[in-house]
Amino acid sequence: MTDKVIENNQAAVMGKIISGFTFSHEIFGEGFYMMDVEVARLSESYDIIPVMVSERLIDVDANYEGEYVSIYGQFRSYNRHEERRNKLILSVFAREITFVDELEESARTNQIYLDGYICKEPVYRKTPLGREIADVLLAVNRPYGKSDYIPCICWGRNARYAGSFEVGAHCAVWGRIQSREYMKKLSEDQLEKRIAYEVSVSKLERMD
């Protein structure tokens, strides 16, 4: 049963470690830490992806900045309470880490597969230039009754298709994890730059 649940959330990223380790939390004596990995896009820009690692998987006292790694795991979420509201925090939970000498140009450095359920009405819209976009929030089951809530963004035909899905629809998505900067309005005259993480969907399939 557990293996089947794990199969519904598979993420693989390859890139360069660009930060040290920051303590996140401890469970049953096992410490978990956060680090940032820079993952190249085909467009020659980058996504900065937060990765959660166990101290049993890597030496968190060492300095690995500038090292290249291949990481396999899951894209997970949790709610952090701040300023009287909950904020959805997303990161790749590493199950395996391998150090690599360099990244081949042909390597697929950012892949994700999710099998879950629509848990919020999809939002379909068009940009001023006419590009079709749909925002989808996918609930992906985890063992022991937990779920991860993963924001996904669809484009073109996939956006039109996703826009017709009802809450509770079972679907699978394939794509990549992306980071995106945006400005958060804190007050009438105060803006703050923040980073959102989401799955950019390349393929979408209805499962029910």
Rank of each mutant, 00 (worst) to 15 (best):
E44V: 05
E44F: 09
A11C: 15
T109Y: 02
N63D: 15
R194I: 04
D3I: 08
Q10M: 07
N86P: 02
R76A: 10
R131Q: 13
S187I: 03
P151R: 03
A62V: 02
V69S: 02
G15W: 05
Q111E: 13
G168W: 03
A62G: 03
A169T: 15
E96Q: 13
E26Y: 04
G116P: 14
D61A: 13
R176A: 12
K203W: 08
M35E: 00
V92E: 02
Y144N: 08
I177P: 08
R142A: 10
Q111T: 13
E7V: 01
V39I: 06
P50K: 01
I58L: 08
F28W: 00
D189N: 13
I49A: 03
W155K: 01
S91E: 15
Y197C: 04
I118Q: 02
L129R: 14
Q74D: 14
S147K: 13
V167G: 02
L138Q: 05
V39M: 03
V123K: 13
L90I: 14
M35L: 15
I71A: 07
V100D: 02
G29D: 06
D115V: 09
G15A: 05
H81F: 15
G66F: 07
M1N: 10
K120F: 01
R85Q: 13
A107H: 11
M183F: 04
S70G: 13
E188T: 06
Y64Q: 10
I17F: 04
L103T: 03
C154A: 15
I27F: 10
Y72N: 12
A159N: 06
S77H: 10
E65I: 15
Q74P: 09
R125V: 03
N79L: 09
L186Q: 08
I150N: 05
V60M: 03
S106T: 13
G130C: 09
S77T: 15
Y149A: 05
F93Q: 14
I153M: 13
Q111H: 11
I18K: 04
S91R: 10
G156D: 10
S70T: 07
K87V: 13
C152L: 11
A11L: 06
V201G: 07
D135N: 14
K185Q: 15
T127S: 11
L90T: 12
F75Q: 02
K146I: 00
N9F: 05
A196R: 08
K193C: 08
Y68E: 04
R84T: 09
H25S: 05
K4P: 00
F28V: 07
G29V: 07
Y182R: 13
D115Y: 08
V53Y: 09
E7F: 05
E132W: 00
E67H: 12
C154E: 08
A94S: 10
I133D: 04
F32K: 11
H25N: 08
R41N: 14
R194F: 03
K146Y: 08
P151C: 06
I153T: 14
P50E: 04
M14T: 14
F32M: 05
S164E: 11
I49D: 03
W155M: 06
V51W: 01
I58E: 06
K16N: 07
Y68C: 09
A134Q: 02
L129S: 14
M207C: 14
R95M: 11
G29H: 06
E82I: 11
P128K: 01
D208I: 05
E38M: 14
S91Q: 13
L204I: 14
E188W: 01
